[in-house]
């Protein structure tokens, strides 16, 4: 049983890590195709993509959209979660359901709906419109995380603050936000990554100022290339870096 367990673990990890390893290894491939045999290593593909202006613009666009849309979703979600946690109203369950609803709808459908609406209104596809779409998908996420983070204990602390004379704004600023800081951080981080990585909404709702996933998509159309490997590896390494930093900072906090 023990041996079987370890064998399974190894097999599973091979399956899970294989594509990433292949991706990274062949980003150093010194030929035109990222397939065996491996030749290299070379950094020329990294040099090429870093010099690619369209790609770098897309990267900046992605960062902006991810940051802004995650922030908006976080603020809206935070306000809604604190508001709904405050008192029990007859409509609470319905409002919660409405706020969560977009989570169960495929991104493609959300994108299509927005595309049609903005078409009718004569609004052209742009980064802004994409940002709006990303808030739509991230708002339920932020709301759900924060709402779940407000347990009985937190509710009582908010109650206590009101009882001691704090206004609603003061309750949010002095008590709710600092108390929910870990959940706020997690929600923002998740929303940021979701937006950063989102393809279909950005694909349908941008035209010239595309985001990184859309730019990578258009790179794919020219077939397999180590340059695409290089972009993918770069995104991967940066993300892993951020995760590790978060892991260690959060870890430090916990042990303190």
């Amino acid at each position: 049983m023990r041996l079987l367990s370890w064998a399974y673990l190894v097999a599973a990890f091979t399956f899970i890590l294989l594509p990433v390893v292949v991706l990274v290894v062949f980003s150093f491939q010194d030929s035109r195709l990222p397939v065996p045999p491996f030749e290299g290593p070379t950094l020329k593909w990294y040099a090429e993509i870093l010099a690619d202006r369209a790609l770098m613009e897309a990267l900046v666009n992605s960062l902006i959209v991810a940051f802004v849309s995650a922030l908006v979703a976080l603020v809206l979600g935070f306000l809604a979660a604190s508001g709904l946690a405050r008192v029990y109203l007859p409509g609470t369950a319905a409002m919660r359901a409405l706020l969560i609803a977009p989570m169960t709808v495929s991104y493609l459908i959300i994108a299509l709906g927005l595309l049609q609406m903005f078409n009718t209104l004569g609004v052209r596809p742009s980064l802004w419109v994409t940002g709006i779409g990303h808030v739509v998908i991230n708002l339920p996420l932020c709301f759900a995380i924060l709402y779940a983070a407000i347990g009985e204990h937190q509710k009582n602390a908010l109650k206590a603050a009101r009882d001691l004379g704090a206004s609603e704004v003061q309750v949010l600023w002095f008590i709710a936000a600092p108390m929910l800081a870990p959940a706020l951080g997690a929600a923002f981080f998740l929303a940021f990554t979701f937006s950063w990585d989102e393809f279909i909404i950005a694909f349908l709702l941008t035209r010239f100022d595309v985001t990184l996933p859309v730019e990578i998509w258009s790179m794919l159309r020219s077939g397999l290339s180590p340059a695409t490997n290089a972009v993918g590896s770069l995104v991967f390494l940066v993300s892993v870096g951020i995760v590790l930093v978060l892991e260690f900072t959060l870890f430090r906090k916990k042990s303190k």
């Binding site: 899970i16 890590l17 294989l18 594509p19 990433v20 292949v22 991706l23 062949f26 195709l33 990222p34 397939v35 065996p36 950063w196 990585d197 393809f199 990184l212 996933p213 990578i216 998509w217 794919l220 397999l224 695409t228 490997n229 972009v231 993918g232 995104v235 991967f236 993300s239 892993v240 995760v243």
Partner: peptide
């Protein structure tokens, strides 16, 4: 869950590399 952190598009592309006729 490490491969989560590659972009979704890139992850599919990686499988295309792995599974291709000349792939690993």
């Amino acid at each position: 869950v490490l491969p989560f952190w590659t972009s979704y598009v890139v992850r599919s592309y990686s499988w295309a590399l792995v599974l291709g006729e000349k792939g690993v």
